[in-house]
């Protein structure tokens, strides 16, 4: 079965850890993840500027590793990302900002990518709030 996973909270929220463990179980069960879509505060998970204390789980880093290892399509909503300070090279240039902090493995794109994924998938599950 084809899944879309929608991440709506920052990597500090328990929901974003839950989303990751769920996504790992989806692949382990032999299902497909069409796309992981990061929206609202979920876009903060894609920042490579997060620094987590050593005795804490680095969920953002684990998400990134999971995405790159499995070559997942990970789309970060561009409008939501810009207003939360998550920029790729092109956007940093466009808005003349110094920091480029979109982690490798993610791409900025529009909400159309969420709808496109829904059309291809069988199930969509959102992880937001706490």
């Amino acid at each position: 079965m084809k899944f879309v996973i929608n991440v709506l909270s920052s990597s500090n929220a328990p929901a974003t850890r839950r989303a990751l463990r769920f996504a790992q179980a989806v692949l382990a069960a032999g299902h497909e993840i069409v796309r992981v879509f990061f929206y609202q505060d979920g876009v903060l998970t894609a920042s490579n500027n997060l620094v987590v204390a050593q005795d804490q789980q680095d969920i953002a880093k684990q998400w990134q590793a999971f995405i790159t290892e499995n070559k997942l399509d990970a789309v970060v909503c561009i409008a939501a990302a810009l207003r939360r300070g998550v920029l790729d090279q092109a956007e940093a240039q466009r808005y003349q900002r110094e920091a480029v902090n979109l982690a490798d493995g993610y791409q900025l794109s529009g909400l159309g990518q969420l709808h496109d994924a829904l059309q291809q998938a069988d199930r969509c599950i959102s992880f937001g709030g706490e």
Binding site: Y39, A79, A80, R83, G112, L114, H115, D116
Partner: peptide
């Protein structure tokens, strides 16, 4: 898609971001 919008308009950007999902669907005729 049934979009359930549960946020007050004055409680931050949540309501506007929910609405953007709807507008994007409209733009793609979905």
């Amino acid at each position: 898609v049934l979009l359930i919008s549960r946020q007050a308009p004055w409680a931050g950007i949540g309501a506007a971001e929910a609405l953007d999902i709807a507008l994007a669907a409209g733009a793609f005729d979905l």
